[in-house]
């Protein structure tokens, strides 16, 4: 299950990962934190995506992960739009026969998603907004 949504449904993701041959399900949930780059007071985040390309990149990462690990089921869901502190913004999950493959493949997918999938995050502070990672 790979998709872009406005609101993450954690139960839906969990259901999509269940498999009779899976002995472990690893789930990573990324959430909005209230500080960034040493500055407190993040009030909300806006996520924008180049949707067709983001989905293609996510599919490509899933394919790479499936070659590297014996994955039974896989979930990559990212939200777009405005998110408040504490809300989930991304959920990555894999189910595998043994837990090490689930942990390792899940970590790979979120690490790579953050490097290559064309989604952008704007942080809102009381006094400014910042597109994350834009400037050195």
């Amino acid at each position: 299950m790979i998709k872009l949504v406005t609101t993450i449904d954690i139960n839906e993701a969990y259901s999509a990962l269940q498999h009779p041959e899976a002995g472990g399900i690893s789930l990573f949930i990324g959430t909005v934190r209230n500080h960034a780059s040493g500055k407190s007071g993040v009030t909300q985040l806006d996520f924008e995506g180049y949707e067709p390309m983001a989905l293609k990149e996510m599919e490509a990462l899933a394919e790479t992960a499936r070659v590297k690990w014996p994955i039974k089921k896989l979930v990559m869901i990212h939200t777009l739009g405005t998110k408040k502190v504490g809300e989930p913004v991304v959920i990555i999950g894999t189910s595998t026969a043994h837990r090490k493959d689930a942990f390792d493949s899940c970590k790979f997918l979120i690490d790579e998603l953050k490097k290559s999938v064309p989604i952008w995050k704007k942080e809102y502070f009381d006094d400014q907004t910042v597109w994350v990672n834009s400037h050195p």
Binding site: M53, H78, K114, S116, P118, I119, N133, S134
Partner: peptide, 10 residues
């Protein structure tokens, strides 16, 4: 054609 500035999803 699209410009892709540094990504920051997740």
């Amino acid at each position: 054609v699209a410009l892709i500035p540094p990504v920051s999803g997740g």
